[in-house]
Amino acid sequence: MDLPPLTALRAFEAAARWSSLSRAGDELHVTHAAISHQIKHLETWLGRRLMQRSGRGVALTPAGIEFYRVVTGALAAIASAAANMRRTHDARSITVGCIPSIAARWLVPALPAFTADHPEINLRIVYARAEEQFDTEALDVLITLGEDRSPGIESRLLFSRVNKPVASPFYLEKHPGLRKSSDIAKADLLHDEKVDYWLDWFRKAQTPPPRRPRGPIFQDFNMLATAVIAGHGVALCPIEVFRHEIQRGDLEVISDISTLDDQGYFIISRAGQSRAVADFINWFTAQCAAVHLSLRS
């Protein structure tokens, strides 16, 4: 196979993911200059420009964007296959893939309780992308957005994805009376990956959206959550996932108009799973159902 230099591919993938040569160097334990050299080597091999300077970091060219999508998927597949090869087949060891929003808010904080109740089970937790399908060779359990209806696969609902506008008390203190959809249209809007979610909400609220929706777009949902809790604006959030933040008063639901009512977050596994997998699924399902959510709109 006529493959490009693999060391250069790793350097390119890390630099593209971080938008920084320095942070890529830190990850791969090499210098900033070494990363730059590897990327130039790859560009020479391909005969295409992949990156360009952008402020203090780097940005992908159109060719770089196209190539990155292929490279990151291929490296992820290799990493998954390697992890699967290294996994023990001990029935007491399970690998759980979990999307970041659920991992940060629900899974990781509760893990000590599971370990205490099941010291005989060895857990390996890995991040999963929201669009990732359940790979029975790499994972024993997948916690993600959407269910898997494939034969031989079981999906159990954990949370509804019902999205409603939320804001922090700090932001509401500066913007009192922010309850009507027409007032929300004038607020600082925070966006999860794209502005379409807010456009759908204004359409359902029968309110003209802002001509130019203000506010940053966050690629990572946890960054969006940090921003809204810090008082940067109003965000559309899955309120079931944010039960704790709402109950603590870190966030307030400011409208009962919702979107994505027919979607949900699921825990997925093979049918007829091992006792260890069944114990984990039953435990985490109970964790997600334990806190009763009572909201005022």
Results as ranks from 00 to 15, higher is better:
D2P: 11
P4T: 08
L6S: 06
L6E: 02
A11Q: 05
A14N: 03
A16F: 02
W18Q: 03
S19Q: 01
S19R: 13
L21M: 08
S36A: 10
I39H: 02
W45A: 08
G47A: 10
L50S: 07
M51D: 02
R53Q: 13
S54L: 11
R56E: 10
A63I: 12
Y68G: 03
G73S: 05
S80P: 04
R86C: 13
T88R: 15
T88K: 15
H89V: 03
D90W: 05
T95F: 08
G97W: 05
R105G: 09
W106M: 06
L107M: 07
L107P: 00
A110N: 15
A113Q: 14
T115P: 05
T115W: 12
A116M: 13
H118D: 08
P119C: 12
P119W: 10
I121N: 12
I121D: 12
E131M: 07
Q133Y: 08
F134Q: 05
D135Q: 01
D140Q: 10
D140A: 14
V141Q: 06
G146T: 12
R149Y: 04
S150K: 02
S150W: 05
P151K: 06
S155E: 09
V162G: 01
V162Q: 14
K164P: 07
P165V: 06
A167N: 10
Y171A: 11
L172M: 06
E173H: 13
H175V: 14
S182T: 09
D183C: 09
I184N: 04
K186T: 11
L190M: 04
H191F: 05
W201F: 00
T207E: 04
P209R: 00
R212D: 00
P213C: 04
I217Y: 10
I217A: 04
F218V: 03
F218A: 11
Q219N: 09
F221I: 08
A227W: 12
G231N: 11
E240C: 05
V241N: 00
F242P: 02
Q247K: 11
G249E: 03
D250Q: 15
L251S: 06
E252R: 15
T259Q: 07
Q263C: 13
F266Q: 03
I267Y: 06
S269T: 15
A271H: 01
Q273P: 04
R275P: 10
D279P: 06
D279H: 08
F284D: 07
F284R: 10
F284G: 07
A289V: 12
A290R: 15
L293R: 12
L293D: 00
L295I: 15
R296D: 07
